[in-house]
Amino acid sequence: MNVAIYCGSAFGRSSIYEQETKKLALKLVENSMNIVYGGSTQGLMGVISNESLKLKNSVTGVITYDLVDKEIENKAINKIYKVNTINERKEKMEELADAFITLPGGFGTLEEISEVISFAQLGYHKKPCAFLNINGYYDNFIKFLENAVYEGFIAKRFIEMLIVSDDIDEIIKRIKNYEAPTSKWKKEK
Rank of each mutant, 00 (worst) to 15 (best):
E30R: 08
E91Y: 06
I63H: 00
K173L: 14
Y150V: 14
E18S: 11
Y81R: 12
F131G: 11
R174I: 12
K23Y: 14
P181C: 02
N34F: 10
S14H: 15
A148M: 15
K126F: 10
I113A: 03
F107P: 04
S40R: 03
A99E: 06
Q42W: 01
D167H: 12
G46M: 01
V29F: 10
K143C: 02
S58T: 05
K184G: 13
E160W: 07
E115V: 04
K186Q: 13
I16Y: 05
L96I: 09
I48E: 06
G39S: 07
D167R: 06
G106I: 01
G43E: 05
A10K: 15
F141K: 10
D66G: 14
G43M: 00
K27N: 08
S32M: 14
A4F: 04
E111K: 01
E73Q: 14
I134K: 04
P104I: 00
A97D: 11
S9A: 09
Y65H: 07
D66Q: 14
N87Q: 14
T21Q: 02
N84A: 07
G46F: 07
E179S: 13
P181F: 06
F144M: 15
V116M: 10
G38T: 01
T102C: 09
E73P: 14
P128T: 05
E188M: 10
S40F: 06
K127Q: 08
T102Y: 05
M45H: 00
E112D: 14
F144C: 13
T41C: 09
L110N: 13
M93S: 05
T60C: 02
V3T: 15
Q121G: 02
N31H: 03
E94F: 15
G152V: 13
F131W: 01
L67W: 01
K56C: 09
S49G: 12
Y178P: 01
Y138P: 09
K90H: 03
G39F: 02
E91I: 11
E88I: 00
Q19L: 14
A155E: 15
Q121P: 08
K70V: 15
K75Q: 03
